[in-house]
Nucleic acid binder design. Structure first.
Lengths: 189, 189
DNA sequence: GCGTTTGCCTAATAGTTTTAGGCAAATTAG
DNA sequence: CTAATTTGCCTAAAACTATTAGGCAAACGC
């Protein structure tokens, strides 16, 4: 029988593409097998099960996102960095909605700790060094940024701001302005 | 054969409970039939299909949430109202994680327009009357609030802020403070 | 070439979704 | 109060997904 050359790597990569095309929910072992023209059972030598496959796609997305973030943040500080980081999340979600959804998958504590998720937290903290925040306010601010970025991106992607004026780009800019102002002038408790 | 007394209403309500117990993802026609002690096919007289069931659960959650919000906002203004609304979302998500997840389901435009989703937007706008914002800033602010509330709640629920100091209640308070300050002092473009 | 590893296969089991058609219980009518 | 009708839940069946066990042949190491 002709061998297609399946590897875990190729499966995960194809799974990520599939997610972007049809949605992360629809990524299934069967669909992936179909895409490679092999039988479903053949995938089970390369991924443990469906959950394992999805987890690996999530980890891939988290890494790609962290790589982009690191790139975008290099040499930037203050509002410039804030905008760059926000844009990384927003652009990634728009370019790769399936991967972005995958990145939202709940990982168990151990997997999460070994994932690129920690880099994300570190980079957000690094960004905040451009503002004048000390603990515990820095942590509060990390969480605020995470909330706004994730919340905005997922609402926009889900059509929550659908087709109504003013356009979403304008809102996004104004939200970044507002965030910058908030961080520069963090209110006392 | 003994009749159990299935109705669409009862199915949706039980589906919502099931969602809170095992997660919205795991709400399945089969599981619901099991819960009622009837055969799977019997449910198809009351809900069109699996997607219909999930949609109805989502609509229920949106309504419950809107009712709570209306209650909480009555007689409040300014930061008081802001805190009350934020707490409604956060508390609801903590009490009913499955329903909250359901409320995030992507509805098609028509269904969304007929849902309690529009009440949510209206209430947020009403809240903003306590601040000095005019269009289009008001819309930007509606979107900001939606992003922060949804983003924070879903990250907290997903364990994104897991078990690290400072505790999430403190962060939540500080985020509400920051939002209030931002709205009182909305930055010019 | 020969043996070993490994990749993909067939076969089988189990669970979910959905449709079609049937019988009996509940409801309405005469 | 029986008879007719509606309705509720059932059985049966097809299609798809997930997963495991075991087999054969291709690729590789010598």
């Amino acid at each position: 029988m002709a061998r297609v050359g399946l590897t875990t790597e190729r499966l995960v990569r194809a799974g990520a593409e599939l997610a972007d095309e049809v949605g992360f929910e629809e990524v299934t072992v069967s669909a992936l097998a179909r895409r490679f023209g092999v039988k479903v059972a053949s995938l089970y030598s390369h991924v443990r099960n469906s959950h394992d496959l999805k987890t690996r796609i999530a980890l891939l997305a988290l890494e790609e996102l962290a790589d982009r973030a690191a790139d975008a943040l290099a040499g930037r500080a203050g509002k410039d960095a804030l905008t760059a980081l926000g844009d990384v999340y927003r652009d990634y979600a728009r370019e790769h909605p399936g991967r972005y959804a995958a990145a939202q998958l709940r990982l168990d504590a151990e997997t999460a700790a070994a994932s690129a998720g920690v880099r994300h937290a570190q980079m957000t903290r690094a960004l905040l060094r451009g503002y004048d925040l000390t603990e515990p306010d820095q942590t509060h601010a990390v969480r605020l940024l995470g909330s706004v970025f994730h919340g905005y991106v997922s609402l926009e992607l889900g059509g929550g701001f659908s087709h109504s004026a003013p356009d979403t780009q304008e809102t996004w800019s104004r939200i970044l302005d507002a965030l910058d102002a908030t961080l520069r002038n963090w209110p006392a408790p």
